[in-house]
């Protein structure tokens, strides 16, 4: 794809990210960090294709990347879920 298109998407995504994250309350900052960490494990998608290369060096590096990115994805989502499951409202309190 055209370089300029990629840069265009990049810039828009940054702005979108800023708008989205600005609305996250400080009480959720830790889950936000670990959850966004899990999203950064998206490199997994890139690593998968590289692990299939005929070149032994490429596929080995790709496979290592698959391993580390998987730790990030699985661990990140699971621990975020564990944390968020603990966030409770006051029982019988008025709904917001």
């Amino acid at each position: 794809m055209d370089i300029i298109n990629l840069v265009f998407i990049f810039v828009l995504a940054i702005f979108l990210g800023v708008e989205l994250i600005n609305k996250v309350p400080s009480t959720l900052h830790t889950p936000l960090m670990s959850g966004s960490n899990a999203i950064s494990g998206i490199t997994l998608v890139g690593a998968l294709a590289l692990a299939g290369s005929d070149n032994a060096m490429v596929s080995m590096l790709g496979a290592v990347a698959v391993g580390f990115a998987t730790i990030n994805v699985i661990g990140g989502y699971m621990v975020t879920d564990r944390m968020l499951a603990m966030f409770k409202k006051k029982e019988g309190g008025d709904g917001k």
Binding site: M1, L6, I9, F10, A13, I14, F15, L16, G17, V18, L20, I21, N22, H29, L32, M33, S36, N37, I39, S40, I42, T43, V45, G46, A49, L50
Partner: peptide, 23 residues
């Protein structure tokens, strides 16, 4: 994502990047 021309990596990566910058 730029290196391998994968848009999803670019989008997801920049969302995380923006989040970290705000924090």
């Amino acid at each position: 994502g730029f290196a391998i021309g994968n848009i999803l990596l670019i989008v997801a990566g920049s969302l995380v990047g923006a989040s970290g910058i705000i924090l």
